[in-house]
C-alpha cells in the first residue's frame, strides 16, 4: 500500500510542527493529501508554515495545561475529527546541557511539562476523537516521538532523558489500556537529526553526521503506514 493510499484523507495533528522533524512531517503529510493541524508557540512561525503547507495552524503551548483543550477544540473543529496524533514537541531542559546536580527545578519541570505532561493531557483530550476514528475504521493512532536518550544514560541530558523515558513507557501503558478501543500507540526514536534542538544541545557536533529531518520524517510515515491497517500486530516500540 502506498503512503498516499493510507495517509491521503487522514486527519493528522502534529505538535512542534514549525521546525525540525515536526515541520518535515507536516509538509510530507500535506503532500500525501492528508488534512493536517500543526501546533507551536510562535504565532509568526505557525502562520508561516500554515501558509507554506496549507495546514491548520494553532498557536499554543502544549506545556500549559490551560492550552490543551483549546488545542483539542481547534484540531477537531478544524479537521472534523482526528485519526493520528503526533506528540513531537519536546523541551531540552537546561541549555547549555547541565548535569542533574546543576539542573534547576524550573528547567526540569519545563522539560516534563512539554515532553511528558503535554502529551499526556493532549492525548486525553483527544482520546474521544481518536476512539471515534477507530470505531469508524479510519485510524486511531498516537505517535510519541522518543529518543535514544529514553533508554541510554547520557551525562548532561537528565531532564530530557527522564521526560523521554517516561513518555516511552507511558506509550506502552496507553497502548495496553486503549487497544480494546482500537487506539494504538507507537513510540518512535527518529535518531540524531540536524535540528535546532540538537544544535542547542551539542553546538559543536559534526552536522554532516546527522540525519536530515526529512529523511527521519519519511521513516516515521513509513511506520505509520505499516501500523495503520494492522495496528494490533505492530509492537509498541519501532526502532528509528
Amino acid at each position: 500500500m502506498s503512503h498516499t493510499d493510507t495517509i491521503g484523507g487522514a486527519r493528522i495533528a502534529v505538535t512542534g510542527g514549525t521546525a525540525g522533524l515536526g515541520r518535515a512531517l507536516v509538509g510530507q503529510f500535506k503532500e500525501a493529501g492528508a488534512s493536517v493541524a500543526l501546533v507551536a508557540r510562535t504565532a509568526t512561525e505557525v502562520e508561516r508554515v500554515a501558509k507554506e503547507t496549507g495546514a491548520v495552524g494553532i498557536v499554543a503551548d502544549v506545556g500549559r495545561a490551560d492550552d490543551v483543550h483549546p488545542i483539542a477544540l481547534q484540531v477537531t473543529g478544524g479537521l472534523g475529527g482526528l485519526d493520528v496524533l503526533i506528540n513531537n514537541a519536546s523541551d531540552l531542559g537546561p541549555v547549555p546541557l547541565a548535569p542533574l546536580a546543576d539542573t534547576t527545578d524550573a528547567a526540569f519541570e519545563a522539560a516534563l511539562a512539554v515532553s511528558l505532561l503535554g502529551p499526556f493531557r493532549l492525548t486525553k483530550a483527544l482520546l474521544g476523537a481518536l476512539a471515534g476514528s477507530a470505531r469508524e475504521g479510519r485510524g486511531g493512532l498516537v505517535i510519541n516521538i522518543s529518543s535514544d536518550a529514553a533508554t541510554s544514560a547520557y551525562a548532561g541530558w537528565g531532564a530530557y532523558s527522564a521526560s523521554k523515558a517516561a513518555l516511552r513507557h507511558m506509550s506502552a501503558i496507553w497502548d495496553e489500556e486503549m487497544s480494546e478501543s482500537g487506539v494504538r500507540f507507537l513510540s518512535i526514536d527518529p535518531g540524531d537529526m540536524d535540528t535546532a534542538l540538537h544544535a542547542a544541545a551539542l553546538p559543536d557536533a559534526d552536522r554532516t553526521a546527522l540525519r536530515h529531518p526529512a529523511e527521519a520524517a519519511r521513516e516515521v510515515i513509513a511506520a505509520i503506514v505499516d501500523a495503520w491497517p494492522r495496528a494490533a500486530t505492530v509492537p509498541v516500540e519501532v526502532d528509528g
Binding site: G77, G81, L127, G128
Partner: peptide, 14 residues
C-alpha cells in the same frame, strides 16, 4: 468551568 470540565470522556469534535 473550562472546556475540560464540559467535555465528556468520549467528546470527539465540537
Amino acid at each position: 468551568l473550562g472546556l475540560g470540565d464540559v467535555w465528556t470522556p468520549l467528546a470527539a469534535r465540537p
